[in-house]
């Protein structure tokens, strides 16, 4: 436990949620609520597991970093593509004709690694 304090924080928080959910079950609520909060406790438990896996594979405090800027140029077109996909639900699915190529461009940029060069 002491070796992975960050995972303990997330897991402890998930556990606290679970306890509060159990108390709610004593009072009684609609089934939807159990599914909802139960699902959230599960997500938090998975997050804790992810932190644990990550902190087992590398030290708790870091000494080396990589500057990950590769493919950042893909982000704005990806966001615009997602916006158009969402707007497709409002204005009709023809917007996908624009959104899909945009997402394609974004994917290509991500693969090619185009980015604004940092100093």
């Amino acid at each position: 436990m002491r070796r992975h304090p960050s995972a303990v924080v997330v897991a402890g928080w998930a556990l606290l949620n679970g306890v509060l959910l159990a108390v709610l079950a004593v009072y009684g609520e609609s089934p939807l609520v159990y599914w909802l909060w139960g699902g959230v406790v599960l997500v938090l438990a998975l997050a804790a597991a992810a932190v644990l896996v990550s902190s087992r594979s590398a030290p708790d405090q870091h000494v080396r970093y990589r500057v990950p800027d590769r493919g950042a140029g893909a982000v704005p077109p990806a966001a615009a593509g997602l916006l158009l996909v969402a707007l497709g639900f409002v204005y009709g699915h023809w917007l996908l004709c624009v959104a899909v190529p945009l997402l394609g461009v974004s994917a290509a940029l991500a693969v090619r690694g185009t980015t604004a060069r940092e100093r």
Binding site: P5, V9, V51, S55, A58, D60, Q61, H62, V63, Y65
Partner: peptide, 9 residues
């Protein structure tokens, strides 16, 4: 959780 510098417990 995972990017703290050395000594930053």
């Amino acid at each position: 959780l995972r990017r703290r510098t050395r000594g930053m417990t």
